[in-house]
Amino acid sequence: MEGLEHILRQHPFFADFAPEHGALVAGCARNHRFDPGDYLFREGDPADEFFLIRHGKVALEIVAPGQAPIVFATLGPGEIVGEAWLVPPYRWTIDARATELVRAIGIDAACLRGKCEADHHLGYEMMKRFLPVFIRRLHATQLQILDVYGKKR
């Protein structure tokens, strides 16, 4: 457990995290390895775990029926994969695919949600860290929707 706790503290997402909170989160964590082409999760699956990438790259994809998957973001070391575990119905709405060897820490969603409910300081700390991630991704999506490199006449 101490090993995972140490690895979690090295991850930028948990920078300056209080040691007692680090121990609580580590209790929900486990190591993962994904080979290129492996899916971390797929659309419609239960969002029962989210991931902190330690190494490698993950592509986030949307699939429309009859079309090839569209990659709309890639995430790398130091980043978080997965937000749907935070809000009901806790189901993934996208695919996440390893494009190279990925080493990640998986956090059990039900376990962490339970601990956040029991310890609101931990819950608030987690929200303070997740919210900027959401906002950055929302801004990025806004910029993508604008299609700024497209031709305007």
Partner: peptide
């Protein structure tokens, strides 16, 4: 280099260029 959108055969970055700055 990053692109706003790509198909699965693109192995580079996908996302907007400001997102590369923190990395």
């Amino acid at each position: 280099v990053t692109v706003d959108h790509a198909e699965a055969d693109w192995h580079g970055n996908v996302g907007v260029v400001p997102a590369l700055i923190p990395r």
